Amino acid sequence: MGSVRTNRYSIVSSEEDGMKLATMAVANGFGNGKSKVHTRQQCRSRFVKKDGHCNVQFINVGEKGQRYLADIFTTCVDIRWRWMLVIFCLAFVLSWLFFGCVFWLIALLHGDLDTDYKDDDDKSKVSKACVSEVNSFTAAFLFSIETQTTIGYGFRCVTDECPIAVFMVVFQSIVGCIIDAFIIGAVMAKMAKPKKRNETLVFSHNAVIAMRDGKLCLMWRVGNLRKSHLVEAHVRAQLLKSRITSEGEYIPLDQIDINVGFDSGIDRIFLVSPITIVHEIDEDSPLYDLSKQDIDNADFEIVVILEGMVEATAMTTQCRSSYLANEILWGHRYEPVLFEEKHYYKVDYSRFHKTYEVPNTPLCSARDLAEKKYILSNANSFCYENEVALTSKEEEEDSENGVPESTSTDSPPGIDLHNQASVPLEPRPLRRESEIGSRR
């Protein structure tokens, strides 16, 4: 089982795998120059863009038009607004034209077009017409509009002379109601789609790998820009990579689940303020055997998904993003964004995407760390350097704002901070800030 798991979770494809794949392509008759073999020097295209759209195009789909027309309502909801407006206008105009032609044909076959009612006051002739005051196609078209929109100006009306005319008036009224219901329903469904809710759900630009509770963890940050909550919010993550099976089958995008606390339930989050999602790199993680150097040379993509129900409509929305291997910062942490004021908490989104480097973060893999092949620094050293990194950030910001350097908390000259780390230190809580992250 261990060997199978290692093969499945191998992220960085070796040169031997690339040569094996190329040999397979030639042997199977696919070596026509169009096949692409992804190596370390040639990274694959992003499968999920940063804005959440999937970078996929469908080609050679059989009976595409028929399949889309069979699900016309979903098609109308998914198309762009400009095409929705075109369909909206065409549906009414074509129905008016169709029934206008029908009423014109009825008048033509009944002989109503030969009668001039402007110079004739004989009401008996008017009563013999199928539709009064309809003696041309324009008049028939206007009567069709008046019937379907129930305008009723009063000059044109159907008589009991022709039952077919009466039937067409009733039929057009029913068709008009159906068109109204369909168009209004599609427009309302399109307006109520929770897709735009994703514009106020954000992911951090970069993911980070750092120590948390004595273990290497992959972390990324999510935030909600609205005050309205995302009900039943939960997160998922998958690692996408290519691999070759033991039988020699090439899988271009193998999807591997990344555990973010599904078993323990901590994948469900209360997204009021930005939260750091934590994936513990343990023996079940696809990143277990990867060191910093392996991450730098790897070719994979981590897709992160945030799902929840919109509070206003109770409709489920899904926000997506992805991180390539070069977008994962090893040995970094996110800057705090949640600050405790006197009577409330304040979230500073200008710090949302910012990170700071944490010294002495192990550069080895989580496996080597678990097997004690890498000796961690003293816990006080880690905490102290973590505090120094934050303090230096604040000093830089104070210097930019014009604060005198004498007010900063610099260490005395001639003292090495790293050498001082081995000395037991008193706890130094942050002056006014605390970061709330997901705790395992």
Rank of each mutant, 00 (worst) to 15 (best):
V134R: 00
G176V: 02
V26W: 04
A314N: 09
C364K: 02
A298P: 01
C319F: 14
Q238I: 10
S127E: 04
M315L: 09
V202I: 06
Y344M: 04
L363E: 13
K372P: 12
V260P: 00
V222D: 01
V304G: 02
K50S: 06
Q238K: 09
G18R: 07
G152Q: 00
L105H: 02
N401Q: 11
K36M: 10
K64N: 08
V388Y: 10
C54F: 09
D160K: 02
H229E: 07
E247Q: 12
V388R: 12
L94F: 04
F47Y: 08
I184E: 03
M315C: 13
T355Q: 01
F382M: 14
E394P: 04
L417R: 07
T316A: 12
V202H: 09
A107Y: 05
N380F: 06
M188V: 14
N297R: 08
V158L: 04
L338T: 13
E405M: 07
N7P: 10
G402P: 13
E63I: 12
S136L: 00
T6K: 05
T316D: 11
C217W: 04
M84K: 14
I209A: 01
M168Y: 03
L390G: 15
K393M: 13
V423S: 12
V278Q: 04
F339R: 13
A129Y: 04
T159Q: 06
Y323M: 09
V37S: 13
I87P: 02
E283D: 03
S322H: 01
R268M: 04
Y349D: 10
V222A: 04
I266V: 12
G65A: 15
D410K: 05
D296Y: 07
H38N: 12
E394W: 03
H353P: 01
D122R: 00
R320L: 12
Q318R: 05
G248Y: 03
I151G: 15
S228A: 13
G31T: 11
V337C: 10
E341K: 15
V222N: 00
E340F: 11
H110V: 00
I328M: 01
N386A: 14
V303L: 11
E395Y: 06
T313N: 07
A181V: 15
Q42Y: 08
F47A: 12
L369N: 02
Y288W: 13
D71Y: 04
V102R: 00
E15M: 06
C157R: 04
S35I: 08
S136Q: 05
A298N: 07
L390S: 15
C162F: 01
Y68P: 09
C383G: 14
S321L: 02
R82Q: 09
M168H: 03
R432M: 11
Y9T: 15
N198Q: 14
R8Q: 04
E301I: 00
R156G: 00
C89A: 06
Y344C: 12
D289E: 09
L85E: 02
Y334K: 00
L113T: 06
K128C: 02
G31N: 08
T138E: 04
T317L: 09
G111A: 03
R320Y: 09
I275R: 06
K241H: 09
S127N: 08
V56I: 08
D254Q: 13
H418G: 13
V131A: 01
C162L: 07
S124E: 03
E387R: 03
S392Y: 04
V388C: 12
R156W: 02
R212A: 05
S242P: 11
S406F: 06
S422Q: 13
F300R: 00
A186K: 12
F382G: 06
H343E: 15
E340T: 10
Y349P: 13
I209F: 00
D160P: 03
Q255G: 12
D78V: 09
D180F: 14
K227N: 04
I436E: 14
R243N: 02
I87D: 15
N7H: 12
C76Q: 08
S35F: 07
V175M: 11
V86D: 01
T355L: 03
G52W: 00
P359M: 10
R431V: 13
D368Y: 05
N380L: 03
V358K: 00
H343S: 10
I281D: 00
A186E: 14
I251Y: 14
S10C: 07
I266F: 11
W83V: 03
A237F: 01
G29H: 09
N198C: 15
I415Q: 13
Y345T: 08
K36A: 13
G100Q: 01
K196H: 08
E15P: 08
I266L: 09
N326I: 02
I244W: 10
F167A: 11
W220S: 13
S434K: 07
V126K: 03
S136V: 00
E232P: 13
G261L: 08
V208Y: 01
L287I: 04
S14L: 11
A237V: 07
F262T: 11
K241P: 03
S45N: 14
E435F: 09
K64Q: 07
N7A: 09
G265W: 11
A27E: 15
L109S: 15
L271R: 03
N135V: 07
K193G: 05
L85P: 12
K64Y: 05
V61M: 04
K372D: 13
A389N: 15
H53T: 04
S144W: 00
C54N: 08
N198K: 13
G223D: 11
I305R: 10
A314H: 13
V423T: 12
F98G: 04
Q148V: 01
R8A: 10
F103T: 05
T74H: 12
R40W: 07
S350P: 02
V86M: 15
D348C: 02
K227A: 07
I72N: 14
V93I: 12
E311P: 13
Y117K: 01
G261A: 06
L85G: 03
